[in-house]
Design a binder for these strands. Structure first.
Lengths: 140, 140
DNA sequence: GTTCCTGCAAAAGCTTTGCAGAAGA
DNA sequence: TCTTCTGCAAAGCTTTTGCAGGAAC
C-alpha cells in the first residue's frame, strides 16, 4: 500500500502481534489521516466501514500500539487524547477557532534546556495554540 | 504575604472579582505550591483546613481564574489537568518514575518554528518526559 | 486446546450543570 | 434588593474492566 504501512506491518510481525482486520484498519486510518485523531474520530469513521466495530477495540488497539511504541499519544488539550503514528519530532499547533491541528517542523536540539543537564530526557513535546491563517483571514 | 500574592489580590480587585475565603485559599495554595497541582491535590489539602469546602468550588474558582488569565492550565498527561499560577514562559519536565514535575527555563524565541509564519501564536507549551536525577541515582 | 482478540455491558473517574440557600454589595 | 458565590446532588463524557463468545495458531 504505502511505505509507512509496510513498515508497520513488518514491525508487528517482529513483535509477534496479530494483525487482525480491526487492528489493520486502525493503523491504516492513522497512516492515512495524520491529523492526530481522537478515539471518537477513528471510531466514527471506521464504524461506517466495519459496522460491528466496538469502541473498546479501538481503545484496545491503540493501547497496544502505544505500549509497543508504534503509536504516540499527543496531549494538547487535557480533555482529549489524540493519537499520532508519525514518530519524527515535530511541533503541534492547535487553532482555537477551527480546532484543527497543524504540524510544524521543529529542531528540538535548538530548544534551550538550561537546568536539565542531569535529567534523562525520553520524550519531547512542543505545542502551540492560537489562530491559523484560514481563520485569521475569515475574521477580517 | 508575598509579592505574587499581593499582585494577584490587586488584579482581582481591578477585574471586580470577589475574593472569597475559598478563592483566596485556592490562590494562596497555588502560589505556595508551585508544583502544578491537580484539582484533587488542591481539594485534598485545602479540605483539611476548610472542612466544608466543595470540589465544585475548587473547579469553579480555577475556571474563573483561568478565564481571567490569572491561572494557566498545563497539559502534560491527557488524563489530568494541572494548574499553574506562574505565568512566565517555562518548560515542564515530568519524571515518569516519581511523577514529579520540574520546571526548567526555556527561551521560546529560540524555538525554530518553520512553517508557522502566517499563524497567530497565543500560547506556547513545551514539556519533556523522562527520568529525574533523583530517580536516576536510585536506580543505580 | 490453548491463547489471544473482539465487543457488549457495566463500572470508574473526572468534570460540568442545575439548583437552592448563603453571603456580599 | 440584586447579584454573586458556595456546595450538594445529579448528569455527562471519556476511558477502563469483566466477561463470554469467537478466531487464530
Amino acid at each position: 500500500m504505502n511505505q509507512l504501512f509496510d513498515r508497520l506491518q513488518n514491525e508487528l510481525k517482529k513483535k509477534n502481534i496479530n494483525l487482525s482486520y480491526q487492528r489493520l484498519k486502525v493503523l491504516e486510518y492513522l497512516t492515512q489521516n495524520q491529523c492526530h485523531p481522537t478515539v471518537e474520530q477513528i471510531y466514527t469513521d471506521l464504524e461506517k466501514e466495519i459496522s460491528t466495530l466496538s469502541k473498546t477495540t479501538v481503545y484496545n488497539t491503540l493501547k497496544k500500539m502505544v505500549s509497543e511504541g508504534l503509536v504516540r499519544i499527543i496531549t494538547i488539550e487535557d480533555n482529549e487524547t489524540r493519537y499520532d503514528i508519525n514518530t519524527h519530532d515535530h511541533g503541534h499547533f492547535k487553532c482555537e477557532i477551527c480546532k484543527n491541528i497543524f504540524d510544524f517542523d521543529i529542531n528540538m536540539d535548538l530548544v534551550l534546556t538550561k537546568g536539565l543537564e542531569r535529567f534523562k530526557i525520553l520524550d519531547r513535546n512542543v505545542y502551540f495554540k492560537g489562530i491559523c491563517p484560514g481563520c485569521l483571514s475569515n475574521s477580517k
